[in-house]
Design a protein around this nucleic acid. Structure first.
Lengths: 410, 410
DNA sequence: TGCCCTTGGTTTACGCCTTGAAAGAAGTGG
DNA sequence: CCACTTCTTTCAAGGCGTAAACCAAGGGCA
């Protein structure tokens, strides 16, 4: 435990990890490209790849003719080497997905939660059930699974097992990881849902390839995933998700967290509905929050009263984005979450303008606002990146990943 | 350039760097302690230290008797191995300080700037003059200087030479590093002043030894230095200093940056004076901003009108701190800057209460608010940590540090 | 068809590194 | 004076990456 980084074995592990990461993020490629991209000499690339191929972790997948020379052979990670599971514990359902190493979906399982309240015990049961269901569904053995990532609403504290504080869903210090361990005998990693959505967009979506980027998640709750220097490790508790509870208007409207003037009290779905109600009386009251919001937004172009409410939200959203831009100077800001994506579609120019009004010129000059690309299963996908990330960083050491009683990191 | 981390030479460099960092931050110690703290085997410690001592970079400085065994010999970095210079380009003066490697002050030079405006050319002249003055003063040869760190107000963009955007002092894309290079033939590193103050507090002050901490800087301007996971690399431009321009009250008071509702428009020194004037007419008008503010604050306990203004600032400050706590969940928040230190002294309980009102319970539970420990030269000290940091991370490779035309990092 | 050229990948001699174990060094207590 | 403890150094052994030479596989051209 003490050694590992300073040793010469660690060097090899790091080089394996570099090669694997490059292969994973930049796609299949020739040995030459891998060498220069990962900063490793050609000889070492061959050496390392030799080992990896023997273990079946990477495979040769074709030749690319080159302009008058020996053609490159392309290597890639073997998607079938192992599987990972991503879980999205949402406020209305639990989604479990089984992926191969290339993040191809192999099986899916969704179970609805009671809308009333999220009981930890029920969630644990549903997660465990979902995990077993997808494995059975795709006929994958547990021993072929490298790990399970779980995205939850609220703060995740690692001490060292994950404890979840979900102020908005009534979870107070729920020892989720310990509970899950009793029913799942696989390596677990628990993370904040907003952060994981961000990671998914960063690996596979609109934030791809950018080292400094912020992904905003707007739904009922409001969060942000902040990625600087290519990684998202901000704060000991994955708390960057709590952007929604930053004050943008002291003494402003009261938020469900209890404080005043939180961003979420202006741009969250609940806020929009409530604001419309205050101004213009009750909107349609059927269906869940998401449906009611959708119905409202559908009328934005024809109903000035709706437009008024939306525009107010947009102003606050812009200011919130400006705050992020000022502090982090990302190069992209990605708007995600079911409501965020809709707002991006309906009001992107206005959001941009509102942000510009409040941001400093210099950092704002270099920023691009984008709509998130991934769909409804982005959180599950992001959750699945946790075990993948662990696996790659270990240099593809299956034993290390499985053996560890695994302090979960997220 | 391509290699360096993956190679076996790099391994040695990293191990040297580990040992040096441990020695530097955790103070002198026995070989045994170094070994376990840095995660290196005893043999390697001896080996590495042998080299370092031969180069004169570390030296043996005494024995510590142990309970019935061979006494440990204590090693420490040699303060006289080299020198570094820290520069604080403030809004009213340029302070240049020469330090030895142990950050002992060897010489100081302060030159006042015209209060009217900060002309880049004048600043460059003053910095260069100050550098030569302190060297002459302490009779240190240029060749013994490992580098010069410079703290400036405003955003610093590395592209790759440092370009400074100081919206509040009228600097728009000033290529400061290029200008300085023409007059100073030493490795340079430019950084945001707020961030550097934070680094100083982190290495030597109230934030010492804590991996996740936020240092707030309040003077005329308002900034924050955010340290997560032990390092402060947030954003490609060291922009974390721009916390003062985050909106806490949309449509609120207008800030000198042009936007509305910035935190700085409520808690900066100018804001306090102006607010008092609005409410109660002109305060004393003699002296500079700092003196006038001091005079006002001196009356806070006897003049309810002053107290009213201060308390308003404190409320906003608390909300701003809460925002930082929610997003980063630091374990300490340190209040620095000449005004910040005063507010901490006068109103710490009120600041704490205001922050608590706006923060989420979970992250706030673990946070401690502290007053900064370092004095008026903290920015210069922090600036001097830049070349030191570079030197230590290089594993104490003097040539590497001096040779590099040095992409400045901060 | 045969030769050279270009480009991609592989092998090998070499030097360097860390480790782990064993030996050495420096005190203490009996 | 001899164990015993604690800290430090030495040394053989095993691994690693690099550089440079060396194979492999085509394309173009005569």
């Amino acid at each position: 435990m003490a050694s590992g980084a300073s040793t010469v074995h660690g060097l090899r592990r790091r080089n394996r990890a570099r090669v694997l990461w490059d292969l994973y993020l930049n796609g299949p490629g020739s040995r030459q490209r891998i060498g220069s991209a990962a900063g490793v000499s050609p000889g070492t690339v061959s050496n390392v790849l030799g080992g990896l191929m023997e273990e079946g972790l990477v495979l040769e997948s074709g030749l690319v003719p080159s302009a008058g020379g020996r053609p490159s052979s392309i290597v890639q990670v073997n998607p079938a080497y192992g599987y990972v599971i991503g879980v999205d514990v949402g406020e209305s359902s639990v989604l479990v997905e089984l992926f191969d190493l290339a993040m191809g979906v192999c099986a899916t399982n969704r179970s609805l939660t009671e809308l009333t309240q999220l009981s930890p015990a029920d969630v644990v049961t549903q997660v465990a059930g979902g995990v077993h269901a997808v494995l059975a569904d795709a006929q994958v053995a547990e021993s072929d699974v490298l790990g399970v990532g779980i995205g939850v609403p609220g703060l995740v504290e690692h001490s060292p097992l994950a404890v979840v504080h979900g102020q908005s869903v009534g979870w107070d210090a729920v020892p989720l990881e310990a509970l899950l361990r009793e029913q799942i005998a696989l390596p677990l990693a628990v993370g904040n849902g907003a952060k994981l959505l961000g990671q998914a967009e960063h690996w596979f979506g609109a934030a791809r390839g950018e080292a400094d980027v912020v992904i905003v998640l707007i739904g009922q709750g409001v969060g942000a995933s902040i990625i600087t220097g290519g990684s998202a490790d901000l704060g000991p508790m994955s708390s960057a998700g709590e952007w929604g509870h930053t004050a943008v208007s002291i003494d402003g409207r009261i938020c469900r967290c209890g404080a005043r003037g939180c961003l979420e009290a202006y741009v969250g779905a609940g806020a929009i509905l409530q604001r419309y109600e205050e101004l213009h009386g009750m909107p349609a009251r059927t269906g869940d929050l998401e449906r009611r919001t959708d119905e409202l937004l559908a009328r934005v172009d024809i109903d000035p009263e709706v437009a008024e409410v939306v525009d107010e939200s947009v102003r606050y959203l812009g200011a919130g984005i400006a705050n992020l831009v000022n502090v982090f100077s990302p190069r992209r800001v990605v708007l995600g979450g079911w409501l965020g994506r809709q707002l991006a579609e309906l009001r992107m120019p206005e959001i941009h303008a509102a942000a510009e009004r409040n941001a400093l010129r210099t950092p704002f000059r270099d920023v691009t606002l984008l709509r998130a690309e991934l769909g409804a299963d982005a959180v599950a996908l992001g959750a699945a990146t946790l075990p993948v990330s662990r696996f790659l960083s270990s240099g593809g050491d299956r034993e290390a990943v499985l053996g560890a009683t695994a302090t979960s990191t997220a």
